[in-house]
Design a protein around this nucleic acid. Structure first.
Lengths: 354, 354
DNA sequence: ATGAAAGCGCTAACAA
DNA sequence: TTGTTAGCGCTTTCAT
């Protein structure tokens, strides 16, 4: 009932951590001996070893990753640095997780961008804070900055523009965007908008390029009015979509730089009484699981996300083990036509906010 | 070109870690002073402080989480312990991630079951290895053992049977399973199989209970022959499903304990030439995003996974801050009828392996 | 206002 | 075979 400063735990299940010293004391040996036993070093009498192991078992002792890491400078864990656990990141994680099985490494996904003040540059911070001590190498997902020289090997997925000499992995962004736009053109659309991605990422620029390429190829003039920033996020896309869809000569189709943006456009279309795909066609990019279950099911460009994650692991492993590693990998993307695209309407129904 | 033991990095981007000592030397002060500046402690001359900050900036120094954690015993990091990044875990992660924004904690998801030898008990190991040093509190997903007394507060999601006095969070397993089974019964099915989940988890037993309850309610005798273990994994389910579907008097419907198992059953049904839902109805549990996009779209019991993750965060935060916390939370589940269930066939077509 | 020194838990040289 | 010691990077008294 006291409110003093003693930091005693409030739950009874909380109990002091068992340290190597506790084990040493209980077994009547030195901490060095315990350490040797635990790490299987030679030079310990069988009887001693057995006794120590018994105590370890009984006390439920595990060596602290933090302490041993500090001392050893090596942990056998791979770090995955990400801004948050969004669908894109978690798909990658699934592939990474599967690929890492049986490779002798544990996985540690760290989200260090939980507040707004470090929205940009979180990976640099995480890398310095954890790299070399907490993990032996890292996979960075959609970095907000060019990956800085670091104390550990790094592989960047969906890299930042001008990512120095770090290894990178991505999918065919230009090709995917071209296919998406061409699909729309083939359906008869000519007023095709583009909701751009995070302009600091290479992929956003590449996807815009693919969009413009296809337009040019079809002889459709590029209209800057039809391109807005969505930052790869549903929330940011909302304003952009509202502007786009309430334009006097509104687009009949939107190519969104990723699925999350596409969902944002979809939401706004619903708000404005525009039916998808009859009044408005929408194409996304990524093919996160949510895309296939949206209403209507989203036409999108599939990136082999899980495979990209798996490749990132094998690249990093090579780096870690000093084997020759590919520097830049690009995997194919492909258009998946579902239900959010249809032939261009002959009569353009105006947006009518409900 | 030498092959000596010097652990020199193989990539040029790898550079030695910048430590507080480097900063101190460069700024011409002691490490203690640097530490004070960094942590905003009083008693440093403005001029000194400024100079140190400059050096910090220039060198790109960040304090090592590992070292400061070791010294401080506190990190402002929440750990999430999981066996792997499967769809169930990643959905929870999405909710956890969203709920943690702006709360002053960073997130660290640790997968310590990457090899087979520690398939059971990984969370105990991870908890001792990291708890209290690397993170201040933990959320454990589908533990393989009852959460042991630990040095930090813990919340278990989808807890193990007999989870001592740790805080837990789950959804209405019995109710969901009853609804699923009742749905099948209402469609006219009487030979309803059940692919059981991981029997060490409370949820598996609870779902089986719901299944049996509904059967009993409808006066359908319980047939042990129709219940097999799937361990919540698609792979393990395959054998179980094959046995079930090649039974002389095969079931016309299967209630799988989770979506992954349901996918396993679906796969086997395809193998055996059984059409879903015409020849065989399947119901899952969880409603992971993949369920809605399966072919056919899976009827399943939805757990509010993201909300469960969010609640886990708020429970843990309460524990961490010494506020009163709910001990056991149960959220509602609900049946989502999609396309993998249909009225019982009047003629039972046999399995015909392709 | 600044720095020296101790110590968090652990491992690795080295000495006994 | 065992223990003593130093030190990984950092924070925190406690002197100066």
């Amino acid at each position: 009932m006291s409110t003093d400063a003693h930091p005693s735990p409030t739950v009874p299940t909380t109990i002091g951590r068992v340290t190597i010293t506790d084990v040493a004391r209980a077994a009547g040996v030195s901490v060095a001996t315990v350490s040797k036993v635990i790490n299987g070093r030679y030079g310990v009498a069988p009887a001693t070893s057995e006794r120590v192991l018994e105590v370890v078992e009984q006390l439920g002792y595990e060596t602290s990753l933090v302490a041993s890491s500090l001392r050893r400078g090596r942990t056998d864990v791979i770090g995955i640095l990400l801004a948050g656990f969004d669908p894109f990141a978690t798909e990658l994680l699934k592939g990474i997780s599967t690929a890492a099985i049986g490779k002798g490494y544990e996985l540690l996904a760290y989200s260090g961008a939980i507040s707004d003040d470090n929205a940009v540059g979180w990976e640099r911070r995480s890398l310095s804070r954890l790299g070399g001590t907490l993990f032996d190498g890292a996979i960075i997902l959609t970095p907000t900055i060019a990956v800085p020289p670091s104390s550990v090997p790094v592989v960047a997925v969906d890299p930042h523009t001008g990512t120095g000499n770090a290894s990178t992995i991505e999918s065919d962004n230009v090709g995917g965007a071209r296919a998406a736009t061409r699909h729309l053109i083939e359906l008869g659309h000519t007023r095709i908008a583009h909701v751009r991605g995070r302009t600091d990422l290479e992929s956003a620029g590449l996807r815009e390029r693919g969009y413009r390429d296809s337009l040019a190829e079809a002889g459709i003039p590029y209209d800057p009015e039809l391109v807005r920033d969505g930052g790869y996020r549903a929330a940011w896309t909302l304003d952009a979509a509202r502007e786009l869809l309430t334009l006097p000569d509104r687009p009949t189709a939107v190519f969104a730089a990723n699925d999350l943006s596409a969902f944002g456009v979809l939401e706004v279309a619903n708000e404005l009484g525009l039916r998808v795909p009859q009044d408005l066609s929408i194409v996304g990019f990524d093919d996160i699981p949510e895309a296939a279950s949206a209403t209507p099911r989203l036409t999108t460009v599939a990136q082999p996300l899980q495979e990209m994650g798996a490749r990132a692991v094998s690249m990093l492993l090579a780096l870690l083990e000093g084997r020759p590693a590919e520097a830049h990998v690009r995997l194919p993307s492909r258009l998946v036509v579902r239900k959010s695209t249809a032939p261009a309407p002959t009569v353009i129904s105006p947006a009518t906010p409900s």
